[in-house]
């Protein structure tokens, strides 16, 4: 009886030792990956921060209105610091995933494979959002200045409309790229903008026929008046 017990315990212990012997290199690999990963992340963060400072990224961001938005959102970091920190955490995240993967635990393998196949989409979506936002700020400001110089009273409204149109467009593109409710997104976008255009067309062409007539007449008269009253100053 005691022999059976002893055999069972030894077998169990050997099995455990075998598992530990298999797991230990993976654990060491994970620790090594984490150490190298964290060091790499820190080095890249530092180098990137210095590079961005050297190319005056903060000044460019200020010009594009990014700094203003960050301070509005309560973020105390400079854009250069924020970008370098972003890359630091991306590398840390990748390191963690690689580390977990090194353990070769079956449950995590599938998840990690999915995550890595999805990662390019995530990056593309972030880039679409950032570029879309910058274009929105730039074109919004250009529209504002052009409208003010054309003496349009509703210059700000026009500028905001341009800005939000581009932001919504880039958000839609980003979500579409991420594959989140693709059909719903496209349908919602088409319905919203199609609806706005249709509503304006109906309101202007049918509901507000007289208003439209007045409006066009007023524009024509203003243009005529402007031509008559234009300055004859030669500015140069």
């Amino acid at each position: 009886m005691s022999e059976i017990w002893r055999t069972a315990i030894v077998a169990s212990f050997n099995k455990f030792l075998g598992k530990v012997a298999t797991f230990l290199p993976n654990l060491l690999a994970m620790i090594t990956i984490l150490i190298i990963g964290f060091i790499t992340a820190w080095v890249i963060k530092t180098l990137l921060f210095r590079f961005l400072k050297a190319i005056q990224f903060d000044r460019v961001s200020e010009r594009w209105g990014l700094t203003h938005i960050l301070s509005k959102g309560g973020l105390a970091y400079s854009p250069a610091s924020l970008v370098s920190r972003f890359f630091y955490w991306v590398i840390v995240l990748i390191t963690l995933i690689l580390g977990i993967n090194a353990l070769e635990v079956a449950a995590t393998q599938n998840f990690i494979a999915q995550f890595f196949s999805y990662l390019p989409n995530l990056f593309a979506a972030v880039i679409i959002l950032v570029i879309g936002y910058l274009i929105a700020i730039f074109l919004g400001q250009a529209a504002l200045i052009a409208a003010v110089n054309a003496q349009m009273e509703s210059a700000k409204l026009l500028s905001r409309s341009v800005r939000w149109f581009i932001i919504i467009l880039s958000l839609t593109m980003a979500l579409y790229h991420l594959g989140i409710a693709e059909k719903v997104i496209v349908a919602a976008f088409s319905i919203t903008f199609g609806g706005i255009v249709l509503a304006l067309a109906i309101a202007f062409g049918w509901g507000g026929r007289d208003l439209a007539k007045d409006f066009l007449e007023r524009i024509y008269r203003t243009k005529q008046k402007k031509d008559e009253e234009s300055d004859r100053i030669s500015h140069i």
């Binding site: 003496q151 009253e229 300055d231 004859r232 100053i233």
Partner: peptide, 9 residues
């Protein structure tokens, strides 16, 4: 003479 629209400016 040079006409100038002050109001518009």
């Amino acid at each position: 003479p040079v006409p100038v629209n002050l109001e518009r400016m």
